[in-house]
């Protein structure tokens, strides 16, 4: 969940900077599309986060099924 928190902080930062970049251009040209890359980047971050969460939660469920705990210190051997 903390990973989601950090990804959202990054997303908010990217949107704010893209908006800042765009507001400067908008003073001369109202229809300017400068800074649209930031918002598309946020979109791709969301895509990667969704993929990562699905795989990560599947791994956590597998760990829980094997050890009946989510403490990863039980898995310090890789073998057995």
């Amino acid at each position: 969940m903390c990973i989601e928190l950090m990804l959202n902080a990054t997303n908010l930062l990217l949107v704010a900077f893209s908006k800042m970049h765009n507001s400067i251009a908008c003073t001369t040209n109202q229809q300017s599309l400068l800074g649209i890359e930031g918002q598309l980047f946020v979109f791709f971050i969301m895509v990667v986060a969704a993929a990562e969460v699905s795989v990560g939660l599947a791994i956590i469920v597998l760990i829980y099924r094997n050890t009946h705990s989510v403490d990863i210190n039980f898995l310090n051997r890789l073998k057995n």
């Binding site: 704010a16 893209s18 908006k19 507001s23 908008c26 649209i36």
Partner: peptide, 10 residues
């Protein structure tokens, strides 16, 4: 630099 909230269409 300032953010201008109302304008922009991106």
């Amino acid at each position: 630099k300032r953010l201008i909230f109302e304008n922009g269409t991106i």
